[in-house]
Every structure is written in C-alpha cells, then in structure tokens.
Design a protein around this nucleic acid. Structure first.
Lengths: 123, 123
DNA sequence: TACCCAAATTAGAATCGTTCTAAATTTTTT
DNA sequence: AAAAAATTTAGAACGATTCTAATTTGGGTA
C-alpha cells in the first residue's frame, strides 16, 4: 500500500463512513495539502476493486465510500443522508433461493430523517 | 399527461424495464424523430417525482428506470445487467424493526451473469 | 551508489450523465 | 381571441469521473 492509499483507507474506515470523494479529498488535504483530486479517485477505485472498501450509490447523490463490515443502510429519501443499520442477515436465505450464483447483496431502507422532518415545510 | 410523458411511461412500463435515458430516447425517436434528449430527462424526472416509475442506481452505471411493481433486482457485478427477481417481502419485518419511519426498501442481489461467466477470460 | 523499471502521482483536458436557462411552442383557461 | 400556464427545444453549463501524458517516487539490482 502506498502512502496515499493507506491514508485514504484510514480516512474511510475510521470516519463515520459514507464519505464522498470530495470529503475524502478535503480530509486528506489537511495532512497533505499538495495532493490532487485525481489521486483520491485513483485510490478509492483501487481500494474498491481490491474489495477493501465499499461503494454506495444512491439516486441523485455522488457515490460514497464505506467500510466493508457487513451492514445495511438507512437512507433519507429527502436529503440523502446515510446511516448504518443492521437488519437480519439475508445471506442464507438468498443462497437457498439462488444457490452458488449468489455473491452478496445490498439493502437500502428509505425513510425521512429527523432533520428533514423538522425543517421540512411540507410533510 | 402530455404526449411525451405518456409515451415515455409506456416505453418504460412495457419494455423489459431497466432502461437508461439514452435507451428511452432511442426508442422514442423511432416514433418522434424530432424529440430532444432534454425532453426525456424532463419527463422521467416528472414521472419519477410523481411516483409512477422507479429509478435504479447501480455503482458505475447510468441510472435506469423501471416499473414500480414491487420486485427486487439481480445485478451482474461484472457488466451491470439488471434482471428482476422476487425475494420474500421484507416490509413487515422492517416495519416491526423501524416502526412508522419506514418508507420502502431497495434490495439488490449481486452475481455474475451467464454471459459474463462464458466470455470472461479470468474467473 | 547509480541505474533501471514499474508504479504512483500530477495536471489538466476530456467525457459522461444530467441539469439549467432562456426562448419558442403548445395547451389550457378566461 | 387573448392571456396565462405548461411543455418542449436548443444549447450552454455543471458536477462527477475518467483519461492521457508527463513527471515523480520507490524499490530492486547490477
């Protein structure tokens, strides 16, 4: 692992997770002010291809990066905020239905977060 | 519903589903060669906001649009191909865990499709 | 140590998907 | 028919991401 790769991995895995490339870039610049955005892209892609981090796509949001520890996501339908949630594990059940073809799954649960409920003008 | 809105809705709901904006645009141009890409964007957004179609985001893929009939998705990890699959309904269980906050969920199940298995040089 | 090679980083252009703005057109209301 | 509202168009603009080519870095190895 290179310096940046390690650093970016560290940022992703020790934060609350769910960081965008821009957020990772901002965090990384505190320590290495000269670093360039492309380096962040290069390294998150490398880490992702290596299976060391997880990429999360939500409609109308930039991709976010997360730890690989198994968990599901709570997504605010209004502001896109992500939180971790653990719903019961579906792996055994999916393997039963699909057999060895099954690789992994991604479960997103949508709701309206408290911030949006409060500040929301309309229900 | 306007002419284009209706036509786009029809294209999405009668196809195998999972169409990108480009594919919808191509289909629409067969009947209305003068139509413009922005019109497709305008209308899929309108339909989506109205809850009449579903938007599907997968990492590294353009968004796709689908019918709203409840079903889950099988996603090829290699080529991104989408297919419908019905896994058992998690709604009751999620409502039990989360209460009224729960809105809906999105379950994506990853595998490697047959085409990719065959043509794939490496395993 | 000095050299070589491969990999990583940089800079910036380019691309893709999507949204925006303003003008033109169509539809609806009055 | 006139006015108002909504839709479509054209094309610029934008945000996110990838690409290309040049430069730098970091090991190995002669």
């Amino acid at each position: 692992m290179t310096k940046y790769e390690e650093e970016i991995y560290h940022i992703i895995t020790t934060s609350t997770g769910h960081l965008t490339v821009e957020q990772i870039y901002a965090a990384l610049k505190k320590k290495y002010p000269k670093v360039v955005l492309a380096t962040v892209y290069n390294n998150v892609n490398k880490l992702w291809k290596a299976g060391l981090i997880r990429k999360i796509s939500v409609e109308n949001m930039p991709d976010r990066y997360d730890r690989v520890i198994k968990h599901d996501h709570l997504v605010c339908q209004r502001c896109g905020k992500l939180e971790d949630i653990s719903f019961h594990d579906l792996t055994a059940s999916l393997r039963e239905q699909m057999g060895e073809e099954f690789l992994f799954y991604d479960l997103k649960i949508f709701y309206i977060c408290q911030d949006c409920r409060n500040s929301g003008l309309a229900g």
